[in-house]
């Protein structure tokens, strides 16, 4: 469909005299958010640090060296000190960031994709399909999480390790579980947006023009429902990072000695007062990540939502 037709279908038509591609327009709108730009740069830097960092700072993050007990910060041996069995905290922080960021992003994608698909389908079609999907959503909402995790691990940990290998297998399992347990709110939000949007004029207009159902759902309604989706996504990243920690603590996640930001906070929470930075640094990293993802989300939402050209 031409840009013109699109503009005509858009709920609030903007007077675009110059014809630009949607991407150009989006980028222009995005750049208008200084905070979003800062967030983007921060995220890129974070990702670079955790990917390249462990290559430069090559201390083994899981190797204990218990001779001295814990070591405080700024020791010549370990810039951020060590924990009580002598594992290097900087190395753990760097290595942990890799896992945490990867888990956060992928788990978020899984939950958003599932939630959006189910929510949009239910909200758009309504009726029996909506009913079935809503009950399905209720079911997930009502599941007791811990037994489910235990059961899933019990059923799938071995086979998935065999088929995908020890490390990738556990990663897929963790991301899958976090994603699969957290799509419900997204689905509900998307559903309610779709229910409300499908009654609007521009949808009727699209119907009248003979636009296919899929195109209406994903090219017309979805962009207007992006707000809640993006917010969900940004919240999910932080949530996934924290949830992961707890999974490893349940013995459901990564191998016990692997550090992640979330599990570092959890492992060292009782060391507050002794090794404050061991808890606060990973917490700070999570905070920065959540903050950056969130501001990025705000920028993206404005950029992707054609209605808002302020």
């Amino acid at each position: 469909m031409s840009t013109l037709a699109k503009a005509a279908l858009s709920p609030r038509t903007t007077n675009q005299t110059k014809v630009r591609t949607q991407t150009e327009l989006a980028w222009r709108r995005f750049r208008r958010h200084p905070s979003a730009m800062v967030a983007l740069i921060t995220l890129i830097v974070l990702i670079l640090i955790v990917t390249i960092g462990p290559m430069i700072y090559t201390v083994n993050p899981i190797k204990p060296n218990p001779l001295n007990g814990y070591v405080q910060m700024f020791s010549p041996k370990a810039p951020l000190g060590t924990d009580d069995v002598g594992r290097d905290l900087l190395a753990r922080l760097l290595f942990g960031g890799r896992i945490s960021l990867a888990v956060g992003v992928f788990a978020m994608l899984v939950s958003i994709i599932i939630g959006t698909l189910i929510g949009s389908y239910a909200g758009y079609y309504g009726g029996l399909r909506d009913f079935a999907l809503s009950r399905f959503t209720d079911l997930f909402q009502a599941l007791p999480v811990v037994p489910v995790l235990l059961l899933v691990t019990y059923l799938f940990k071995e086979p998935i390790k065999v088929s995908l290998g020890r490390e990738l297998g556990v990663f897929v399992l963790v991301v899958g579980m976090i994603g699969a347990l957290n799509w419900m709110t997204t689905a509900r939000l998307v559903r309610s947006s779709f229910m409300s949007l499908k009654a609007r004029d521009f949808v009727e207009a699209a119907h009248a023009l003979g636009v296919s159902e899929a195109a209406i759902m994903f090219r017309h309604i979805l962009p207007n429902a992006l707000g809640p989706i993006v917010i969900s996504a940004t919240l999910n990243v932080g949530g996934a990072i924290i949830t992961e920690s707890v999974l490893s603590f349940l013995g459901v996640g990564f191998e016990a000695d692997w550090p992640t930001w979330g599990s570092l906070v959890f492992q060292y929470k009782d060391f507050i007062g002794i090794l404050n930075h061991a808890v606060l640094l990973p917490a700070l990293m999570i905070f920065i990540t959540v903050l950056a993802v969130n501001y990025l989300g705000e920028g993206l939402r404005d950029a992707l939502d054609p209605r808002k050209s302020r």
């Binding site: 811990v146 347990l181 949830t243 920690s245």
Partner: peptide
């Protein structure tokens, strides 16, 4: 979204 669910999940699991 999920935040709530996360919250629940996290707290539940962490607590557990």
């Amino acid at each position: 979204m999920s935040k709530y669910r996360f919250f629940k999940l996290c707290s539940l699991t962490a607590a557990a």
